[in-house]
Design a binder for these strands. Structure first.
Lengths: 129, 129
DNA sequence: CTTGACCTTCCAGTGTAGGGGAAGGTACAG
DNA sequence: CTGTACCTTCCCCTACACTGGAAGGTCAAG
């Protein structure tokens, strides 16, 4: 399978596949005599895994760690479980931060929706912020 | 007021102040005869405004736009109101995305918390993702 | 006279996940 | 022989908000 076919099969671009190889997510492939990369069928499964992991919000670095564990022959289950737990905690933190920010912005917006020219002080730039 | 004093007064670094000047958030200041920047008292109010705006999640580009409106002598109230409305909508979108992602990750995590060695298929890298 | 705390400019790097495009090799159809 | 559709490596660019560091000028104290 050449890089273009692998790209179509995985819904990624050839640029992305080369980038993943350079980033350590894909092993250096066999090369045909003309120098072209020649991917095996397992590459498609690997790319699908990468896509699923990306969809779960994992970074390429985290995905690379999982793949490396699998590549040395171990089952990455425990590592993945811990990773997902941390990911959940991180998401909860981010959501809480955004909700707090939303409340702050909503207050500002409510104030700005009741225009009060008297409150307008040029020295303060804008009284609604 | 020299840049170090202005930095302490605003809780920012001198690096940040120079960066803000280069980014168009602070006007080019007067210079003392030795070339040092000499800030007026209004700079502190401006930096406070920038800090409040940053706390509301506005980007430097958005803040620069507000400041420019104020600098040409107009009241940026209307612009700020619209900006806050868009900011609210954007936050709602981001929060919704994160909540959806959280649900996905929670599902994965629940599955990973009930280890099932039989489901472990090396070809799939990890069955929990 | 020197030390240290300031200040100046400018260049480069941080992290994330690729994208754009140049310059050149390869394979096959017409 | 030429067009075209691939492929290769290489380096630079994007957004965001700074941060680090080099090389050098200024000023007051000891």
């Amino acid at each position: 399978m050449r890089i273009g076919e692998a790209a179509v099969a995985s819904g990624m671009t050839t640029k992305t596949l080369r980038f993943y190889e350079a980033s350590g997510l894909l092993p250096a492939t066999e090369r045909a005599t003309n120098g072209y990369r020649d991917y095996g069928a397992d590459t498609t499964a690997r790319l699908d895994f990468i896509r699923r992991s990306r969809a779960a919000g994992l970074t390429l670095a985290q995905i690379r760690d999982i793949l490396q564990i699998r590549d040395v022959g171990e089952a990455p289950c425990m590592h993945v479980r811990d990773l997902l737990a941390r990911q959940l905690a991180d998401l909860d933190r981010q959501i809480a931060e955004l909700l707090a920010l939303r409340a702050t912005v909503a207050e500002f917006h409510d104030a700005a929706s009741e225009p009060d020219p008297a409150a307008c002080d040029p020295d303060r730039i804008c009284s609604y912020l």
